[in-house]
C-alpha cells in the first residue's frame, strides 16, 4: 500500500531523515516510535506531502507521489492527524469535518462519512456547532481524527495522538484506531508512548537520530532490551 524508499529530508541544510525506508501493507497498523527530535513527524509530514524529500521516493499503491503538490496528495488516499491536532481553531467542529472532505471524491460521500464519524465519536455530534479552538484537548483530538476520516483515506497518518491527553482519552483514541483499521484502512502511528503504540500495532519501526535503527513485528520490539537503550541512550 505505502512504500517509502530511501528518503532524505532536509530543513534548509539541516538533514532530518537519512535514507529512511518504510512499508505499510493493506489494513496494517504500523507504528513509528522513537525519542523526540528523532524525525518521526518529519516522516509523516513527508508522506502527507507537506514536506518534500530531497531524494528517495514515496509510492502509494505503486503510484509515485513524491513530487505531487501538497493539495493533491490527499487524492491518493492519504489523510493526516497532525501533531498538536492543528484544527482550524476559529471554525466550528462541523466546518472542520466538512473541510476534511474537501477533495472531490470525499465530497461526494460527505453525508455518509459524516454519519460514520459521528457514530465513532458521538460527542462530536453534540459539539458540531462549537468553535474548535474552545474545546478540550481530548475533544480536539477526536475532531482531528474525524476530520482526517472525512477525507475517506486508505492510509491514515497519526502524529502523536496521545500527546497531552488523559489516560482515559488515550484509551478511547486507541480504540478508534483499532476500529478504523478493521475497516481496511492502513494506519501509520507515530508515538512517543512506545508501549501503548506497540500494543496495537502489527509492525513497528524505531527511528533514532533520523535513521531507522530497528524494525519488525511489534511484539518482538516490545520485548527487545536494545529498544530501551537506544531510546534512553544508556
Amino acid at each position: 500500500m505505502l512504500r517509502v524508499t530511501d528518503i532524505d529530508v532536509f530543513y534548509g541544510d539541516a538533514q532530518a531523515l537519512w535514507s529512511v525506508s518504510v512499508e505499510v501493507g493493506e489494513g496494517e497498523v504500523v507504528s513509528v516510535v522513537g525519542p523526540n527530535g528523532a524525525g518521526k513527524s518529519t516522516l509523516v509530514n513527508s508522506i502527507a506531502g507537506i514536506l518534500r524529500p530531497r531524494s528517495g521516493s514515496i509510492e502509494i499503491d505503486g503510484v509515485d507521489i513524491t513530487r505531487v503538490p501538497t493539495h493533491r496528495t490527499c487524492r491518493a488516499g492519504v489523510a493526516i492527524v497532525p501533531e498538536g491536532r492543528r484544527l482550524f481553531p476559529a471554525m466550528s467542529v462541523r466546518d472542520n469535518l466538512d473541510l476534511g472532505a474537501y477533495h472531490k471524491e470525499a465530497r461526494a460521500k460527505r453525508e455518509e462519512t459524516l454519519e460514520w464519524v459521528f457514530s465513532l465519536f458521538p460527542k462530536l455530534a453534540d459539539r458540531a456547532n462549537q468553535v474548535a479552538g474552545s474545546m478540550s484537548g481530548g475533544e480536539q483530538q477526536m475532531a482531528a481524527i474525524g476530520r482526517a476520516l472525512m477525507a475517506r483515506p486508505r492510509l491514515l497518518l497519526m502524529d502523536e495522538p496521545s500527546l497531552g491527553l488523559a489516560p482515559v482519552i488515550v484509551d478511547e483514541v486507541f480504540d478508534v484506531i483499532r476500529t478504523v483499521c478493521s475497516g481496511g484502512v492502513s494506519v501509520v502511528l507515530v508515538e512517543q508512548n512506545v508501549h501503548r503504540a506497540l500494543e496495537i500495532s502489527d509492525r513497528a519501526y524505531l527511528l533514532t537520530e533520523g535513521r531507522i535503527t530497528m524494525s519488525g513485528p511489534a511484539a518482538e520490539l516490545a520485548n527487545d532490551p536494545t529498544l530501551r537503550s537506544l531510546v534512553l541512550g544508556v
Binding site: 507537506i50 503538490p69 490527499c74 487524492r75 482550524f88 476559529a90 473541510l99 477533495h103
Partner: peptide
C-alpha cells in the same frame, strides 16, 4: 460555501489546509 470555508481554513493553517486538498 465550501470555497469560503476553505479560504478561512487556509487563513488559519496553510499547511494543513493544503494537506486536505485546498489549493490556495
Amino acid at each position: 460555501t465550501y470555497a469560503g470555508r476553505a479560504l478561512q481554513a487556509f487563513g488559519q493553517d496553510r499547511q494543513i489546509a493544503a494537506a486536505f486538498g485546498i489549493d490556495h
